[in-house]
Design a protein around this nucleic acid. Structure first.
Lengths: 247, 247
DNA sequence: ACCTGAACACCGTTCAAGT
DNA sequence: ACCTGAACACCGTTCAAGT
């Protein structure tokens, strides 16, 4: 999607200051059903992305949803890439941040942060996919990372190592969640649970002659469901990470 | 790209047994310049993806590169998604595996595996992006994960915890590398080094009033280049992970 | 200031036809 | 068995025009 036109360098909504005239209007203009603005457009985009997935999300269906012609939308946003960045940041606003006044240990707060990031992303698979394509530097996203930095700032780690600590935790969470939602989505598309789907795939792989059997990576352990296993593997790895950081 | 047509569930090349008649020919047919087959198609795809990026990679330019009509390619592969999966697995073949006979500590082998995965992916940014979209269960990819499993099998970890260990390491590496190559590519697109680009972005963010300053996440430490910092953060986090796993 | 309609330059892919 | 040409059903977006 990004950089479709030939050699135009791609940029970011966040780096091109928005002309405040557009989509910004005073309170005198009542929010009648048909009035368009950035906010309404982004909200509709997020809703459609959630409901139908990013593959089916086009400027044309967005316009239809808004009861408007495709080109109307372009009055408020420069292009689809910008809209995706806006939608991405809107989702970042949903991530619950721990209350610093609660007085929890920094490790618990870091854990909580990781968990709520994961929860949010699993419910917006298109968003986590967009991470691979867009810079994610909107205000809500920055608010999240500022919060994360404040949490590690309370740790005993020397200042020079804090970025590595954040990197370790959140790159891991990103990787894990990305993988997780890919399986969930695949399963949903073929109409099964992730459990069933993964088992089918494991079966096919085991039979394919040219594929050397992975031997165990995909198999259930102790009769637990895959959902349970996923959760506990996630927790376990997080524990290791945080434990390792403190020696 | 995946699942473009409306409600057709997406599948995978690896799950739909290839009719061996196609693209498989006896040795009697010399590999003349114009002869098409799966192998040649996939090789050309990888080359084009490397050179021009996935945004510009279309079936039409692929066909042109092969000196053939777009639809010729479809005799050998079912669709573009399948081709991407094939290309993805071709790249997985490049990942260097540690020699189990070298007698290194399992931790060193795990590290080596992570490093060579990262190196391979950084040189094929389209491939790491494809991870978010496709099942990655081709023979070379499975060979890689079988190797990784063999390595942790040599660790003192109880069997039930090995999947979590693998998950921790490789999800982290995936997340890190994904982020890394996104910045590298963005920088390249606007014609600067990742260093310069990141600095510019940090500058813009600092100035944007609605964005709460991240405060330090993006700043250099001790005058080192970003490349150096990236490498050392990566190493540090890997150490933590592996150390944490062993208590 | 805001919205439309028609058009452009693309996509991936189907299908009937050629050799 | 392999390859082509024309066409279909889409995309995002430009541009000139309307109100």
């Amino acid at each position: 999607m990004a950089a479709k036109r030939a050699s135009q360098p791609r940029s970011s909504v966040w780096l091109t200051p928005e002309p405040t005239t557009r989509g910004r209007r005073g309170p005198e203009r009542g929010s009648g059903a048909g009035s368009l603005d950035r906010e309404r457009i982004v909200a509709a985009a997020v809703r459609l992305l959630d409901e139908q997935g990013d593959a089916k999300f086009t400027m044309r269906v967005l316009a239809t949803e808004l009861g408007v012609t495709p080109m109307s939308v372009y009055w408020y946003i420069a292009n689809k890439d910008d809209l995706m960045e806006l939608a991405l940041d809107a989702v970042a606003a949903e991530i619950k941040l721990p209350d610093p006044a609660a007085g929890l240990d920094w490790r618990e707060d870091l854990r909580a942060l990781a968990l709520s990031w994961r929860r949010t992303m699993v419910s917006h698979p298109w968003a986590i996919r967009s991470y691979a394509e867009y810079l994610n530097i909107g205000p809500h996203s920055m608010r999240f990372s500022a919060c994360a930095q404040a949490v590690v700032a309370r740790s005993p780690l020397p200042e020079a190592e804090r970025p590595a600590a954040l990197s370790a935790v959140f790159q891991y969470v990103y990787g894990f969640t990305s993988m997780e939602s890919r399986w969930l989505e695949y399963g949903k598309e073929v109409g099964r649970t992730a459990d069933e789907f993964l088992e089918e795939v494991a079966g096919s792989i085991a039979q394919a002659p040219e594929i050397e059997a992975g031997g165990g990576l995909m198999e259930r352990r102790a009769g637990r469901s895959l959902d349970e296993m996923r959760d506990s593997d996630f927790d376990r790895a997080l524990d290791w990470l945080i434990a390792g950081m403190c020696d």
